[in-house]
């Protein structure tokens, strides 16, 4: 019996050496180790052995089983390894091909800039007010110290609908509406929105454009506060190195009034084509709220004072992105819009 076992071992190990695929391996396992396999077959004859022989043969049987099993396991592992390797080989792809682009659109650059401007002011404690784009002459002009036939009305050529109703020429009427609504209480708002002025369209002019204006009214608001506010704003918008420069100017609704230049964003003030070698770019107008405007808004100019400022969103966007023609904003060419689909 021992010889039969040894012979089985030799036969099995030899057979296993010839195996090349997992299916054949499994067949051999059944053939030698299965319930009806060769080993079981031989060991079934153990019943006829003596009590002394039985443990000896049993041990041999176990050794044979162990040896065959070990050989099978080894093969099995090898097959698995090979299978994995071949699978990896088969699954190899060209990683340099482009990935699937997720859908992505873009917020319009004018709104992108407007939102950025709004956020800066929100961070400075401003709320946002809005008003109608079709306005009454009263809110657009008269309550802003621009009575009918005032020569300063020429500064803003308007689209009238009737004698008393027009397309707003600035977002200042929202300031007037805000003052009336606040009813004498302090004001700190910005007013973004579309405005309309009769203007021949060219690379720097558009009859429709966007403005953001600000208004602050409280006790003891000073012109130095206006300067401080604007400096804080431009540094947040254009970087800490940005400085401002005020030049006296005229707006009917402010006194004193000023135009504000900011350090050129392109050359940082050294002088370049964009700033016409001056180092400065004009970006906004501002001033102390005219006492007439305060009075008409329901405030006592002896009690409170205020400042106001305003800027064109297109102008800031042109500067910020280096866009050469304002008309791009309204053509809505996807090749243009798509350039703003990023941080």
């Amino acid at each position: 019996m021992k010889e039969r076992l040894e012979a089985l071992r030799t036969e099995a190990l030899e057979a296993l050496q010839q195996v090349t695929d997992p299916g054949a391996l499994n067949e051999l396992r059944i053939k030698y180790l299965g319930k009806k396999g060769g080993l079981t077959e031989i060991l079934r004859g153990m019943g006829g052995l003596s009590a002394e022989e039985r443990p000896v043969i049993g041990q041999v049987g176990n050794e044979v089983r162990g040896a065959i099993e070990a050989a099978i396991d080894e093969l099995q592992e090898r097959f698995q390894r090979e299978e994995t390797e071949s699978r990896l080989r088969a699954e190899t792809i060209d990683v340099t091909l482009p990935g699937k682009a997720p859908l992505s659109g873009a917020v319009h650059p004018l709104n992108k800039v407007a939102q950025e401007l709004e956020d800066v002011f929100i961070g400075m404690g401003y709320t946002i007010a809005e008003g109608p784009e079709v306005e009454e002459d009263y809110y657009n002009f008269e309550a802003l110290n621009l009575p009918k036939n005032h020569p300063a009305r020429d500064m803003q050529d308007s689209f009238y609908i009737t004698d008393e109703i027009l397309m707003r020429t600035h977002t200042s009427p929202v300031q007037v509406r805000t003052m009336k609504q606040m009813n004498g209480k302090p004001v700190k708002v910005i007013c973004p929105g579309k405005v309309y002025r009769r203007d021949d369209d060219d690379a720097t002019h558009s009859f429709q454009f966007n403005q953001i204006e600000g208004l602050v009214i409280d006790k003891n608001i000073r012109m130095s506060d206006l300067k401080g506010t604007l400096l804080q704003f431009v540094q947040q918008m254009f970087g800490q190195q940005a400085q401002i420069r005020l030049r006296p100017s005229f707006f009917p609704f402010t006194e004193p009034s000023a135009e504000v230049d900011v350090t050129c964003v392109q050359c940082q003030g050294h002088g370049c084509r964009m700033c016409k070698q001056t180092g400065w770019l004009e970006i906004l107008g501002c001033g102390m709220v005219h006492p007439r405007v305060l009075e008409m808004g329901g405030y006592d100019p002896e009690e409170v004072s205020g400042f106001a400022f305003g800027m064109g969103v297109e102008r800031i966007a042109l500067l910020k992105y280096g866009i050469d023609d304002i008309r791009h904003f309204y053509a809505n060419d996807l090749r243009f819009l798509n350039q703003f689909a990023r941080m």
């Binding site: 992505s104 659109g105 873009a106 309309y196 429709q208 904003f329 809505n332 798509n338």
Partner: peptide
């Protein structure tokens, strides 16, 4: 704006006239 641009749309601004 956020949701629609994430869904692949581009925002346009056209003239009111």
């Amino acid at each position: 704006r956020k949701r629609l641009t994430n869904a692949g749309l581009h925002e346009a601004i056209s003239y009111s006239f």
